[in-house]
Amino acid sequence: MMLDDLLNALFPSHDTQVEAEGILCGTAQYGQDKTAAVVGLVNRTPLGVDGALSLAGHVLEVIRHSPGRPIAVLIDAQSQRMRRRDEMLGLNEYLAHLTKCFVLAGQRGHRTVGVLFGRAAAGAFIATGLVQDMLAAVPGGDPVVMDLPSMARVTKLPQDRLEALSKDTPVFEPGLDHATPIGAVAEIWNDGDLAEKLAMALDGQPGAPDRRDEIGAERKGRLKAAAIAKRVAQEATAHA
């Protein structure tokens, strides 16, 4: 889905712009005359130090000036920018900063909802998509850790073997069909009224506890994580 089509489908009206580095910002109406902040990383742009800083600045603006306003985060990106300059300048700190600003927003009463409508990979996916209170996807959403040819190179397994293996498990192959059973994507909005679905999502609980491991267990896509995390706490309390 193109950005303009998505914006029109999600909001009755909106006032948004795309700035340098593919950074989306603005506001939009949703539900019964309520206002949401809209930010994002779009136009299939990789996330480098400049873009991460700019996006974090928009999030801090919302926290400072619009208490309680929910934030919709639209995502069609690449991975983190793979340049020596970005790494030299400390890209990890910039991505961490952006991540922290989103989590801080949730903690201060801004519900954050990611809408994945294109590609998102690796560091960019973690800092814009996986960090939100809720992550939804629309058709075209394409989460990737690593593509299968690269994975074949790293794991030293032939690609056709990997393709065969991926039929039995959602744990390594890219794509929405695999991100959803493990709990990474909460909902896929395939049909119906997108604006209504987003409005419901934006009215959810800000800073909600991270239940993705339990969702992964319920959907039988990630069987061990939730139980292991709980057992650590149980053993720790027993030894306290």
């Binding site: 960090v131 850790v145 690593m146 994975m151 991100a179 493990i182 994580a225």
Partner: peptide
């Protein structure tokens, strides 16, 4: 990488935690 999707999600859960 052999557990790419669940590994990336785990990193994200660690960050949040």
């Amino acid at each position: 990488l052999q557990e790419a999707n669940v590994g990336e999600l785990a990193v994200s859960e660690v960050i949040r935690a």
